[in-house]
Design a protein around this nucleic acid. Structure first.
Length: 462
RNA sequence: GGCCAGGUAGCCAAGUGGUAAGGCAACGGUCUGCAAAACCGUUACUCACCGGGUCAAAUCCGGUCCUGGCCUCCA
């Protein structure tokens, strides 16, 4: 049984997809006007964990991640650089894909771009106009919130009580201040589409409704994003989608908390952000970044610091060394240690049930560390054999499908390094430690660290 | 003003009625030619604060304080 905390009900609910064995999921993606910062990536890592866990649980996941390539900021950027919009956004789309790979974020099934779905948006807006949920004013089209009584059900805002903290200084004409733009009529802006509903460009929210419905249907299982998307973005999506179809839009809404830096939200507007590239340039391990972003529960705020990133680096290093140590045990003959068999089973159960409880990653990871301890003990006391190691590796590979923090590729060393290791082995046997240490240093300079164990010398990259 | 999170060891972080998981760091020990890793041991009589109730609370109830977020740019 899997439970998720649903923003809609503010409760943990048992997860049951519409179609058995299949999960249809929409994950809010980037607006490609700049490099994504690691605050953004916290959300993407959370979505990745969700995606991977659902597959681990046996579901086929059909996932959409939208690319917002038309909005005020992308337009401003393109104008500033005096290039076509698509040329401006292409750079950041490519960077985003690269960053995703770097953090081992699984690809969505579809990455639809807003600019390539104008037709679908126009059609949706036409439906809303036809049904009386939208109105046109001065070439722009707005959603009439007063026509949708359940507006506010996601954010749980009571609009009668809310005194807006901001004064409205909107350049567009609206019946009511809270009505939002479906279509922004264009007067002399450079980027626009000529459509049946006029000359202009889409509002921000409509793309997600149009594209999710196109790829996932009018009602689908999961929709995710950061908490700052709850209002207005997701609230508006619900309004326009449900108004248009008359059906429930999404069954489970999952939102992740913000990444903080020095106790404050990390955001572009505050300037207190790190991009992934910033951190990589400082020499940090991308897997440590992934681990750090993933290691706190998604609904809790996570305070980012380079200190915690260094801690994460050490943790990841240990995990990595552990994985290699187990690989090394594949050569040890003998009967399997029954303690390990049992420990694997326990760990496997704990891992799954932890994640099944609204992605309790801390408990899931703790179960892995407990297993590690047992295995190390077994290895230390000489009870661990290849028969255990095979099963352990199989298990680690399996959970790595969810966590993606182990480096599982069996790297082959180059022949010259192998040769150096052999030479050092010979020197050690001859008790020529000076030469042995010099060779170890030489090998270390090539990025390979050597460990001497009772079973022989083994190596670890880095 | 309305709404939502959170406050657990030096740091990160689980646990939401049965007597404080896990990680990082630190210190002591074992092993080792050295190194590293690993292993063993130590590190919260206590969970922001106050009060209540319970055989029993970090966990429930009432109140207070602090931090962050949302209230039409935002993951």
């Amino acid at each position: 049984m899997i439970v998720f905390f649903n923003t809609l009900s503010r409760k943990k609910e048992i997860f049951k997809p519409i179609e058995e064995g299949v999960v249809k999921m929409y994950t809010c993606g980037p607006t490609v006007y700049d490099f994504a910062h690691i605050g953004n990536f916290r959300a993407y890592v959370f979505e990745d964990l969700l995606h991977r866990f659902l597959e681990y649980a046996g579901y086929r996941v059909i996932r959409v991640m939208n690319i917002t390539d038309i909005d005020d900021k992308t337009i401003a950027g393109a104008i500033k650089e005096n290039v076509p919009l698509h040329q401006y956004t292409e750079k950041y789309i490519n960077a985003f894909i690269q960053d995703m790979e770097c953090l081992r974020l699984k690809k969505a099934t579809y990455f639809p771009r807003a600019t390539q779905h104008i037709k679908e948006m126009v059609s949706l807006i036409k439906t809303l106009l036809l049904k009386g949920y939208a109105y046109e004013k001065d070439g722009s089209i707005y959603f009439r919130i007063s026509s949708f009584p359940s507006y506010g059900k996601l954010s749980h805002y009571d609009f009668d009580k809310i005194v807006s903290a901001r004064t409205d200084s909107d350049e567009y004409e609206k019946e009511q201040a809270r009505d939002f733009a479906l279509w922004k009529g264009t007067k002399d802006e450079p980027f626009f589409w000529n459509t049946e509903i006029g000359k202009g460009r889409p509002g921000w929210h409509i793309e997600c409704s149009a594209m999710s419905m196109k790829y996932l249907g009018e009602t689908f299982d999961i929709h995710t994003g950061g908490v700052d998307n709850i209002f207005p973005h997701h609230e508006n999506e619900i309004a326009q989608s449900e108004a248009a179809t008359g059906k429930k839009f999404v069954n489970y809404w999952l939102h992740c908390a913000h990444l903080l830096v020095n106790g404050e939200k990390m955001s572009k507007s505050k300037g207190n952000f790190y991009t992934l590239r910033d951190l990589l340039n400082k020499g940090y391990d991308p897997l440590a970044i992934r681990y750090l972003l993933m290691s706190a529960h998604y609904r809790d705020p996570l305070n980012f610091s380079e200190k915690s990133l260094k801690q994460a680096e050490n943790t990841v290093k240990h995990l990595h060394a552990f994985y290699q140590r187990v690989s090394f045990a594949l050569t040890i003959k003998g009967e399997p240690d029954p303690v390990i068999e049992k420990s694997l089973q326990t760990s496997s159960n704990e891992f799954f049930s932890a994640l099944a409880d609204d992605l309790n990653i801390s408990a899931a990871i703790a179960s892995i560390f407990k297993l590690m301890r047992n295995i190390n003990e077994s290895f230390e006391s000489g009870r661990l054999t290849a028969k255990n190691a095979e099963k352990i590796l199989k298990f680690l590979n399996r959970i790595n499908e969810v966590l993606a923090i182990f480096e599982t590729s069996r790297e082959q060393l180059s022949l010259d390094i192998m040769q150096l290791i052999r030479e050092r082995e010979r020197a050690r046997k001859e008790k020529n430690y000076q030469l042995a240490d010099r060779l170890r240093k030489e090998i270390a300079d090539k990025g390979i660290f050597l460990e001497d164990t009772p079973y022989g010398t083994r190596w670890i990259r880095k």
